[in-house]
Every structure is written in C-alpha cells, then in structure tokens.
Design a protein around this nucleic acid. Sequence first.
DNA 1: ACCATTATATTTGCATTGCAAGGATATTGG
DNA 2: CCAATATCCTTGCAATGCAAATATAATGGT
Lengths: 122, 122
Amino acid sequence: MTQEQSRLDDSVARWETQLRKGVLELVILLALREREKYGFELISGIAKRSSLELSEGTIYPLLLRLAKDDLIKSRLAQGDGGAPRKYYSVTPHGRRMLDAMTAGWTKLVASVDALTAPEIDR
Amino acid sequence: MTQEQSRLDDSVARWETQLRKGVLELVILLALREREKYGFELISGIAKRSSLELSEGTIYPLLLRLAKDDLIKSRLAQGDGGAPRKYYSVTPHGRRMLDAMTAGWTKLVASVDALTAPEIDR
DNA sequence: ACCATTATATTTGCATTGCAAGGATATTGG
DNA sequence: CCAATATCCTTGCAATGCAAATATAATGGT
C-alpha cells in the first residue's frame, strides 16, 4: 500500500462522512418504522441489515435531535442487567416526514443515476 | 396549504440541503467526466439532466475546493460576450476519486435499500 | 461617452451535521 | 467494594451547502 494510496483512502473516508449527512436520519426512521428499538439495538440492527456502522457518538445526538423535532418519542424500560434502556418509536409526524424523506431520497438517487449515464450529444 | 404543512415543507427543505452534502462533489465529477465545462454550463447541464438545481453560491466554492484538492483543473477562455469562462476538467487523480466515490455511493444506496425492505423476524 | 444589461466568477458568513473522545449511570458477579 | 458489562449522554471540532453580496468583462442602446 503506497503512501499515495493511503492519502486517497483518507480522502474517501472524509468524503463518506459527508455523504452520510442527512441519510442517517432517514436510516433511523426506517429502522424504527416497524417497531420500537433502543440505541444499542439500532446500532447492531443497522450494522446487520446494511453496511452502515454507526457509533454511539453519532447515534445519540441524532436520536435526541429527532425526539426534539417530534419525529420519534422514547420511553424508559429496564433491561436485563446494565443501564435502563430507552426505547424509541416513530411519531405520526415522524411518519409523514419519513414519507417525504423517502421521496426526496428516491429523487436524489434518480438524479445521480441520470448523471452516471452517458451524456447525449448536443 | 395549512401552516402545519408548510412547517413540514420547511423541515424537508432543510433536510434535503443536508442530504446533498457530499453528493454534489460526485455529481460535479460525473458531469465533467466526458468533457470540460464551465461553471454556468455545469449548472444548466445538471439541471437539464437531473432534478438537481445548484446555485452559484453552491457550485463555485465547490469547484475551488475540488481544484485545490487536485481533482479537477481549470483553464481560462474567452466566451461570446460576458466575462471570460473558466473551463474545468477532471484530473487523473480526480478519476481515481470518482471511481472510489461511485463505489461508496453504490454501497450507500444498497444500504438504504436494505433498510427499506421489510425486516425479517428474529 | 455613458449606462443598463447580460454572462460569468468570487467571497463571506451562517446553520447544520457526523463523529471521536471522554464520561455518566445502572446492574451483576466475584 | 471493585470490576465488568450494558447502556446512554455531552462537548467540541471539521466539513459542507447556500443565501447574499460583490467583482469583472463585453455588448448594445441612447
């Protein structure tokens, strides 16, 4: 692995961090769509079902923000050992946002697809 | 259009701004992949081929950043009236980044797709 | 000569996000 | 009482998109 290669890798890593912005909110709402989950469960569940690895420092501020915006709500429950768990679920307002966000995401994917295709001659 | 509806629209607009982060670098590189273009040509070309509307305040800082990172390079040329145009083209390093970014984008799209599908029972 | 218009490029500053790093809280077992 | 485990929270930084304002050059009308 040359030095040039690792510089490229660093650039890509920094870029992928930027690429996640916004997407993670959609991802959380999608993951909570069917049933409530708590923080750690979200992290492991998302890692299992996709190639996304979220860290605690990423997900907890995000959950707090979503709750503040009334997209999700939480309830506290005792777990089997360890600290009490906070279960999050999607609010009605969150479902409306999820629909809008899914539409926006689909549109963005279609745009990138269109630009990936060869350009037509003018 | 109720007040609640417009609040939702505002939220979605703010979110879509975040969603573009990172994607726009990929979009520019894709748009310049086949031939050089100048700023305004990029804006109108991308708007025509996709549903993305970039503004000057968005694209010029982006182009400067890409040039600083040696992903694109520019040359100055006179246009038919108006200020001289700056034509941008992708560097070899930019092509390597474009490949890596395309791969990262594909992976992200696949992840969101996977989370959109119904969850399998545990 | 002058000014408005059109076409193009640049700069500044703000709001927002992802995340590393560190710390806080609660339960269980030795 | 301490260590380990499970879970959650907070602070601060780096990076980005964009509105708004500004700059530059050529042309055409008066």
